[in-house]
Design a protein around this nucleic acid. Sequence first.
DNA 1: CAAATTAACTGTAACGTTTCAGATTGTTTT
DNA 2: AAAACAATCTGAAACGTTACAGTTAATTTG
Lengths: 364, 364
Amino acid sequence: MRQTLMAVRIGKQATGTMDEKSITPNHPSKSQERPTLKTIAFMTGLGITTVSRALKDAPDIGADTKERVRLVARQLGYQPNRAGVRLRTGKTNVIALVLSIEEELMGFTSQMVFGISEVLAGTQYHLVLTPHSHQRDPMMPVRYILDTGSADGIIISRVAPEDQRVALLTERGFPFATHGRTDMGIMHAFHDFDNESYVYQAVRKLIARGRTRIALLPPPSNLSYYHHSRIGFERALAETGASEVPVGRVTSESSLGMIKEFAENLMRNHAPPDGIVSISGSATVALIAGTEAAGKVLGKEFDLVSKQSADFLNWIRPEILTVNEDVRHAGRELAKAIIARIDGVAPDLLQSISHPTWASAAPV
Amino acid sequence: MRQTLMAVRIGKQATGTMDEKSITPNHPSKSQERPTLKTIAFMTGLGITTVSRALKDAPDIGADTKERVRLVARQLGYQPNRAGVRLRTGKTNVIALVLSIEEELMGFTSQMVFGISEVLAGTQYHLVLTPHSHQRDPMMPVRYILDTGSADGIIISRVAPEDQRVALLTERGFPFATHGRTDMGIMHAFHDFDNESYVYQAVRKLIARGRTRIALLPPPSNLSYYHHSRIGFERALAETGASEVPVGRVTSESSLGMIKEFAENLMRNHAPPDGIVSISGSATVALIAGTEAAGKVLGKEFDLVSKQSADFLNWIRPEILTVNEDVRHAGRELAKAIIARIDGVAPDLLQSISHPTWASAAPV
DNA sequence: CAAATTAACTGTAACGTTTCAGATTGTTTT
DNA sequence: AAAACAATCTGAAACGTTACAGTTAATTTG
C-alpha cells in the first residue's frame, strides 16, 4: 500500500460529500469558504484525523501522504482555525502585553510594542494589549488573563522589587516575562536595562568634568529600577567622594510642571548641584526648562546626563550627555523570552540585561 | 408553573451529573475549573440552552428564571468562553489595530492605543496589534485579517487619498474605521484631525506677526493629510498675498538629520523664510536645530508653528506656536466608531473631525 | 370538552480541532 | 498456516457555544 491511494476512494459517503456551500450569486465562483481540515481531507481522499496528524508531522503517517497533504494545504492557503484549536487545546496563541497608562510618553510604549511584534511576526502568536491604570488595580489585568485563560503568556513592565503580579503568576505556574527585575527570591524571565551601571557611569562622567555636587532625579520609589539607580548613584559617590544634592519627593514621573518648578528652585539654592542625572527623557525636558529659568547655563554652570528611549535630547541641547535605552530591543528580548517560557524553557535561561551605550557627543 | 422549579429536578441524568473533575492534589479544593454554561445549568437545574438564552435575555425565558440564572452566573463569575463563541458564531470580539512602524515616534502610537483601550475596556472587545512595515506591503495585514477572520473590525491609519485597503475592506463589507480621510467616493467611518484648518490658521498667525515668506514642512505626499495641509496653506497664502518658500522633497518623515541639514541650508539662502509651519513635533525638533545652526533666532528672525501629539515643544522653546493633536481622543473616537460600525451603524454617521486648539503661549 | 394556542423550557447538531482507541492492511514470526 | 507484528489510516468524542426544531404543560378558544 505504498502509492496506491491516489484518490481511489473518493467521496467518503459517511462524513458527507464536501457539502458544496451554495455559491453566493454576486461572486461568481471565487467566494470559496475558508479551507478547513475537512476541505483538505476531501481533496486528498483522506480522513480528517489523518490530515491533522500529517500536518503536524506525526510519526504514524506515511511520508508520501504527508507530502501530499502539505501540498494541498499550501495550495489552498490553509490556516488552522484559531478558535477550533483554542477550544480543543486551550492554546490561545496570544501573548498579552500588560501596560500601564502611566508608561513614559516619549515613544517608550510604541517601541516596546514594535519590538515585540517584530519577533511575533514570525510566529503564530498575536499580540493583545491590556492597558490599565496602574494606580487603581495593578492586579486586575493579570487576574483577568489568568481567570479567563485568554493568553498563553504575559509580558509585564514597571515591576516592583516585591511584585504581587510576579508572585501570583509564579504561584499559578503561568508563563510570563517582565521588563525589569524583582527582588523576592523568585526566578523568572526578564529583560532589564542596567540602570545601576547607567547612573554609576553618569556620575563618573560628571565627576570627570569636575562636577562634585550631584543630584539624581530617580524613578518612583516603588519601582525596581529606583533601587538600581540609587545603588549606582551611591556607589559612584562613595568611590569619588562627591556629594549628593537631594531632590526630595520629586521623581521622573512627577508632572513636567512640578519638575520644572523643582529644578528652578533647586538651582536657585545657595548651594545648587553642578551635575544632574536624569533617568527619563521627558523629565529631562522639564529639568532643562527649570534650570534655565533659574539662569543657569547647561555645560557651563552645570552638566546634565540623561537616559532617553528616543533619540531627541541632543537635538535640543547637544551638551546633554545621553544614553539611549533601546526599548525596541527590550521588546524583542521579552518576546523571545516569553515564547521560550511557553515552550517550557527554564526561566533562569531567559534573563538578559542591556548595558548603557553612550551616544556620540552630537548628532549629524 | 411559576415558581415551582426551585431545584426540584436535580441531577439530570441524561446529560450526566456535573462530572466532578478530579481535584488536583496540590490545590486542596479551591481549584475549581472555570465555570461554563454547563456549570450554571447544573447548579440551577436548567438546560444548557435555557441558561444560554436566559443570559442573553431572550423573550422565551421566564423572568424569574432569568433572574436566577443571572444570579448564579454572577456568583460564579461566569465569563463566556471566547473560543466557544468564536467557533460557533464567527464573532471574534477582537478589534485589530493595523499600524505601520513608520508611525510618528513621539508618543503618537501609544496615545492612540490608550485612547482605543479606554473605550474597549468597557466592552467585550480585545485589542490586537498588527504592526507591519508600511513600505513593504501595506495590504498584507488587512488581507490576513480578512482571510482568517481574526477580527470583527479594523482600525487603520496613515491613509492615502486613494487607499487600497479602504477599497478592499469596503468591497468585502468588512467593518473598519480610519484615522484620516480618503478621497475616492467611498463612504466610511473615520476620525481625522483638521490639518487644513491647522495649517491655514498657522499661516494666518505667522502673517499676523508680520511674516510674509512662509515655508511648510508637510507630511509625505502619498498621505491624505499632505493634501489637506497644502490646501490650507495655499488658501492662507492666497488670502494674504504672502509667498511660499518651497522645501523641495523634504517631509516631516525625512530623517531628523536630513531635516536639520535642509533647515540650515534653507535659512542660509539669500532669501530665507521668516515663518515655518511644521506638521510634526519630532520634525520640529530637527528644524529648530537646523535654523539655529544657521544662526537664526526663533521669534526674532523667524517664527515657527508646529503641531505635536505630546506636549513637549514649548518646554524646549516657549516661542514656538503649538497645536496639540489629541491622539488619545482620536483613539477613543475610532474605537467608538468601529464598534458602532460592527453593530451595523451606517458609516456616514461615524465620521468626526478634531479641530485645532492653540496651546497657551507657555506652559506652567 | 376537544382542539388550538401560548409560555417556558430542552436536546441535538454544528462550528474546527485534537485525542483516543481502534481498524485495516500487509508482513513477519513461529 | 496461524499468530503476532508493524505500518497507516480512521471514526467518535470532546472542548463551549448557539440556532433550530422540538416538547411539555398550562391556558384559551370554539
